[in-house]
Amino acid sequence: MLQMVLLHQSPGSHLQPLASSLKTTQKSSSVAAAPLPHKQVLPAPRFCSCGRRHFVEAATAAFLPVCFSNASSLHSDDYLGLLNRIHPPRPDWYEEFYASVMDSYMKSYEAEVAGYKSQLFGELRGKAKTVLEIGVGTGPNLEYYADNSEVQVFGVDPNRKMEKYARAAAAAVGLPPKNFHFVEAVAEAVPLDDASVDAVVGTLVLCSVKDVNMALKEVKRVLKPGGLFLFVEHVAAKDGTILKLLQSALDPLQQIVADGCHLTRETGKYISAAGFSSLELSMTSLSNAPCSLISPHVYGVACN
């Protein structure tokens, strides 16, 4: 049961190293040695009432491109209400337990996907000075920004207990405190201005958001024209397979024990239909995922 709790990075990580670029992937079923999966290049087609969340109001005032999400008419009370509705309050002990487990248990997963991440985040070098990461969780991706002294990373997560782990991760990899801003929020309602960031990153988060389409609309809204969306997500297995049957049977339980994580989401289809100007989407299956239930993955880069 505990293993199931750890299947995703909190709502907020690709896989075997890519070849020379994202444009030359081949099909793969493991991370270590096989060629990479085939990539399709597709045409354009957000707790309590005690006040802990009110820190968002003060914190966002200090951020460079930040305002309350979606429109200037959305007041802080509206934002907090929306945040509470999308991510209802969890007990402190649960959020702390979940954060601590994610911090320790996902290390093997991160080691397996490090090659993919290195190549995907390479797409941001020289292009992104302001990055939003939805579902930042305990900060496993922060190491990929550490070599950019100019980057400003806004890490969004609804679990406030993730912050101390994310800040520790930033310090461990040499990312200056002034370069990392933690915001307690959800992907469906991001407190950033329209067209305010160069890139958005989401790894193991769209499996857990309440409304995938709403989250992707927020991604597109905050991205500048030509901005990039980097993603890595576990997804549903192919129809008719034993794995898909197992995912379907265990999905209701998974959502309860894993903070809303879905095993059967076809996240690639959501991203494909979101209206990005271009999309490079790859599929693979991890051989050493923390649980075989999440071995199917999609990953790639979309351009706004």
Rank of each mutant, 00 (worst) to 15 (best):
L2M: 12
V5E: 15
Q9E: 12
P11W: 03
G12N: 08
Q16T: 08
P17K: 08
S21H: 12
K23I: 02
T24W: 03
K27M: 12
P35M: 01
P35W: 01
P43L: 05
R46K: 14
T60R: 15
A61D: 14
V66F: 03
F68P: 10
F68S: 11
S69I: 01
N70W: 02
A71V: 00
S73D: 14
H75S: 13
S76H: 14
S76T: 13
D78K: 13
R85P: 00
H87S: 05
P88M: 10
D92L: 12
S100P: 03
S104T: 09
S104A: 07
Y105C: 04
Y105D: 11
S108K: 12
Y109T: 01
A114C: 11
G115A: 06
Y116K: 07
F121E: 00
E123P: 00
A128I: 10
T130C: 07
L132T: 07
G137F: 04
Y144E: 09
Y145K: 12
Y145V: 13
D147F: 01
G155N: 07
Y165P: 00
R167D: 05
V173I: 10
P176Y: 10
H181A: 03
E184N: 12
A189F: 09
L192S: 03
L192Y: 10
A195D: 08
S196Y: 06
V197T: 06
V200D: 12
V212D: 02
M214G: 11
L223R: 06
K224R: 15
G227D: 03
F229R: 10
F229L: 09
A236G: 03
T241D: 06
I242W: 07
Q254N: 13
G260C: 11
T264E: 10
S272C: 14
A273C: 04
A274H: 10
S277K: 15
S285H: 12
L286V: 01
S287M: 11
V298P: 00
V301S: 05
